[in-house]
Design a protein around this nucleic acid. Structure first.
Lengths: 114, 114
DNA sequence: AAGGAATATTCTTGTCAAGGAATATTTGTA
DNA sequence: TACAAATATTCCTTGACAAGAATATTCCTT
């Protein structure tokens, strides 16, 4: 393994980056829903809803529970925890006191002298 | 305006969802860098580095400071704060006690009787 | 068993975004 | 002034992905 892609899993972000899928996640915030309800409330056609739900499930953002005819989708906590950890890990990086821009400029000027 | 897209700005997520751009963000965690250094350390060609940096800047994730010949890119705090708020707002939604799946199933069964 | 409801899947098509290559632009330097 | 370094931009090609339409699958009800 070469030390590539150290950050957060980008597939999670890709999944959330599609507006309809973001809407689905926002909708499921209030609790689990069936495919039909999701499609209805968001004005999506059923097949597109199913497809987006599949993407979200494949990425671990949602989980399904089969209940007879229906499939009930709900949020999974893990990806949100991961996102939270990732964002939190930037606390130091984005605080102004860690803005070593000045130092970096000095470094650049020093290297000019070579 | 129709109440569409209530969640987080998906363009921020799209910008971060590209692996090279995620790498750039991870790299800039340690402080500001020039285009050349970013390209070098990540094994990117200069034009692609510039293009990715432009996307990140256009989305407010990075900011530039022109220093003579060089352009120095660094992280901007705002999008991380936004992401943090968004993720935090899911705390209630993903706690198990808010898993009203049982209630929902009962609801479904009740509606069957219509 | 037959029909209908809920959901998933397949196929096609159009759009968009990323990489490659070449070139333009700006600035510093001999 | 000419040249080199650092960065940005343009054009082209290709691949991924989302919507639409049609169809398949599963399960319930009569």
């Amino acid at each position: 393994m070469s030390g590539k892609n150290p950050g957060l899993d980008t597939t999670t972000l890709s999944a959330l980056a599609e507006p309809n899928r973001m809407d689905i996640v926002e909708l499921l915030r209030d609790g689990p829903l069936t495919v039909g309800e999701i499609a209805d409330r968001l004005g999506l056609r059923q097949p597109q809803a199913s497809k987006h739900l599949k993407v979200l499930s494949d990425n671990g953002i949602l989980e399904v529970k089969a209940e007879a005819n229906r499939r009930i989708y709900k949020l999974r906590p893990e990806p949100f925890h991961a996102l939270d950890s990732w964002v939190k890990s930037f606390r130091l990086a984005i605080e102004d006191r860690f803005d070593n821009l000045e130092d970096y400029l000095l470094d650049l000027q020093n290297k000019e002298k070579s």
